[in-house]
Design a binder for these strands. Sequence first.
DNA 1: TAATGTTTAAAACAGATGTTTATAGCGACT
DNA 2: AGTCGCTATAAACATCTGTTTTAAACATTA
Lengths: 222, 222
Amino acid sequence: MAQTDTVTRILDTAEVLFAERGFAETSLRNITSKAKVNLAAVNYHFGSKKSLIQAVFARYLDPFTERFHAALDELEARYQGEVIPLEELLETMARCVLEVPAERNSLKVFMKLLGLAYSQAQGHLRRYIQEHYGSVFTRFAALVRQATPDLPDAERFWRLHFMLGTVIFTLSGLDALRDIAEQDYGEHVSVRELIRRLRPVVVAGMNAPLPQSTDDALPAAG
Amino acid sequence: MAQTDTVTRILDTAEVLFAERGFAETSLRNITSKAKVNLAAVNYHFGSKKSLIQAVFARYLDPFTERFHAALDELEARYQGEVIPLEELLETMARCVLEVPAERNSLKVFMKLLGLAYSQAQGHLRRYIQEHYGSVFTRFAALVRQATPDLPDAERFWRLHFMLGTVIFTLSGLDALRDIAEQDYGEHVSVRELIRRLRPVVVAGMNAPLPQSTDDALPAAG
DNA sequence: TAATGTTTAAAACAGATGTTTATAGCGACT
DNA sequence: AGTCGCTATAAACATCTGTTTTAAACATTA
């Protein structure tokens, strides 16, 4: 079974290098040489570098969406039409996001990749993710809407993305932050502990009072 | 005054292209051709592409740190040794961050660049920024510490970065989010309004209750 | 005017990039 | 045995990269 071996070895190596240096900064030769695989193997098995990148994401996101849908099914069944509390929804999402990479001990890599997907993907990746995985988020957003009936739609939309930003930004830039934290406090922070710290902040952010409708004191911006 | 014109034309073009596509995806030929400047001019004036990138950041960050230090001076003088309230500190920082790009109507570009600095800078840029502008953040952090005496040091450290993540992530990925928001709500969001929305969320996050010390229900993570 | 230092211009450089091709190896089935 | 489909290999492809070099144009100063 040499072919499967080659494919997974390419994926395993690619995700690590992508997470470390980014997409453009990682050449196919970097990947294939480190994976001990022929250069042409990437184009043979995946077609192009773009498709490789998408495959790297799919290997995480496909199991995630499957799990997440299942978890939401279970949640809806348990609450029998009643409104699912916000904390329960957030908790469920967090659990599903963590489970998949946890099985491969690659949470750090996965988070870095998520961060890259937002910042480095001006084109194909953003489209790919939106096309393939947008529906899960839509379903989740609808449930959050029921859980926060007092929040105006637009406000909730933005707050969800604020929270997404907090989590992805933190966990994807974790290495750099951890370095600073260690040299400041001598304390080594685990991802698990970081999530414990994130939880009350995220919940408080979602439940924050509504902004005042008028605002000055800030300069105009183009 | 042809030389100044060339230099600023390079910087103006470079920052836009960097913000749009990232550093590695923007070639010097892209920059110089769009700026209607000779290719060799970049290496002549800046020495290298790396230095160009740093110069692009310096053009924002130098005025920012100057302003921010001055604003903090003024704040300390006004409060005469008394503790400066947290909201005042956050407000001041926000104002300073916004003022510089506001003068050039380039807030969007600046925020994108900040996002890139976090996610794309594995090497020289992160070092450059930390070296040149780390002291302002240290000063700010010390003031925030006085403003939040009940927060453990580590907790405050992380929450500051959580909030930084929220803001940078949101404003740097603004275009993509704005597209989604518009197609969902038909509402066009200005940066100014986004900041109005961000404020209560950030404050609530900083003031969130402390996390419980033990935690289960989440899978282990490497 | 002549000389000097600075900026632009065009071409060339060596190296790296993603992708393709042509060839060989291998296992399976008729 | 022989053929077919799939995979691995090595070499070559054209293109793009950042950087240098050479020469010309320019402005400034003596």
